[in-house]
Simulated scan of single mutants.
Amino acid sequence: MPEWTVAQPTKLTFDTPVTDLHVRIVNGTVNIVGTDDPTAHLQVSEIEGPPLVVTQQDGTLTVAYDDLPWKGFLKWLDRKGWRRSAVVSLAVPARTRIEVGVVGAGAVVSGVQGSVSVKGVAGDTTLVALSGPVRAETVSGNVEAQSVTGDLRFASVSGDLTVVEGSGPSVRADTVGGSMILDLDPGGPTDVKLTSVSGEIAIRLPDPADADVEANTASGAISNAFDGLRVQGMWGAHKLTGRLGTGSGRLRATTVSGSIALLRRPAGEHEPEPPAASGDNAGTTDKKVL
């Protein structure tokens, strides 16, 4: 099994096929971009503390620390182990399946067609133009998803979720104290289920929209921009129900003390294009210890 120990800024190119990518870093940044290039490229532009270990076996490329396992990742709270940092950029074939774990680091994943799984103890995550299923789990980091067309799953303790131009067939999001802001533009029926304890929920739908809607809050406020829906409850608990268009989609939102807002996008409103992410494909090396 090829293995490299990366202790200083380095560039690597992997000519053998890569079908899966696993990355786990502490502090710093990881930037992953899917490309049409059949080879994978790695650049470590900054690194402090323990070295990263890079391995490639049976189509799986791993860039990680030896003491930072994927299993139980969200419970890795050894503060002494946080004394490290790395800035990592990867360009991989677009169909690669991605697993990313970050502790105090930012992560950007763009242009990937395979499944994407992100776990974060802290640090924000940006997901751009992903067409496969996406799962993001965070303790306190925020997640922004732009132009994601696959199924989206999100779970957080206090991190926020922002979805821009979401057009996937389903969204499932659960948070304790984080807020959720979803701007949806589905091309067909969409199944959305959002659950929060104290976080606020805001959903913007196109007009006209097709969805069966039910939103509940135990003690928060509800605001609604659609005439076809009705709000029940004067004091305490509030419930918003009704059908928009044919009702082919499904929207469920529940919060205990947070507020819920259902917003309307005017017909024909132009949305800005999301910023393009960039990758670094340059450079190769055949050294094993770097």
Rank of each mutant, 00 (worst) to 15 (best):
K288F: 07
L74F: 11
K239H: 13
V63R: 03
G49Q: 11
D37V: 10
S147M: 03
D37S: 14
H238D: 01
V53D: 02
R230I: 13
P38V: 10
I181M: 08
F14V: 15
W82N: 08
V53G: 06
S167T: 01
R153C: 05
V157K: 05
E137D: 15
T55I: 14
E200K: 09
V197M: 10
T5G: 09
P169V: 11
H41F: 06
V103Y: 08
D183R: 06
T149D: 08
V33P: 00
S259A: 13
G279T: 06
P208W: 13
S278N: 11
T96F: 09
M234N: 03
S170W: 08
V92T: 13
W82S: 10
T241P: 04
P169I: 01
I201H: 02
I201W: 05
Q146Y: 12
G28F: 02
R153H: 13
N216A: 01
D212I: 03
R252P: 04
V87W: 09
H41K: 13
S198V: 10
W70H: 03
T5H: 11
S170C: 07
A105D: 05
V103H: 10
P275H: 12
A129T: 12
T62Q: 12
G106Y: 07
E48P: 04
G177A: 11
V192W: 06
R153D: 15
G199M: 01
Q43D: 11
L194C: 10
S170E: 10
T126N: 09
P206N: 10
V112I: 15
F226P: 10
Y65I: 07
E46N: 15
G81M: 10
V23P: 00
R84D: 09
L130I: 14
E214F: 00
F226C: 04
P169S: 11
L74E: 09
S117E: 12
L244P: 04
G220I: 06
V30S: 03
S110N: 08
T19A: 01
I98H: 04
T195M: 14
P266I: 06
P274C: 06
N281W: 02
Y65S: 02
T60E: 10
R252E: 14
Q56C: 03
T190L: 12
T96L: 11
E144V: 15
G28E: 00
V231K: 05
A267D: 11
T241S: 13
P206R: 00
V87L: 12
G114H: 02
E144K: 09
T285C: 15
D212A: 14
P208F: 06
L184Q: 06
I32V: 14
F14K: 06
G101H: 13
D183N: 11
F226R: 04
Q57E: 09
G34R: 00
G114W: 06
V112F: 04
I98N: 01
R264G: 11
L263E: 14
T125G: 06
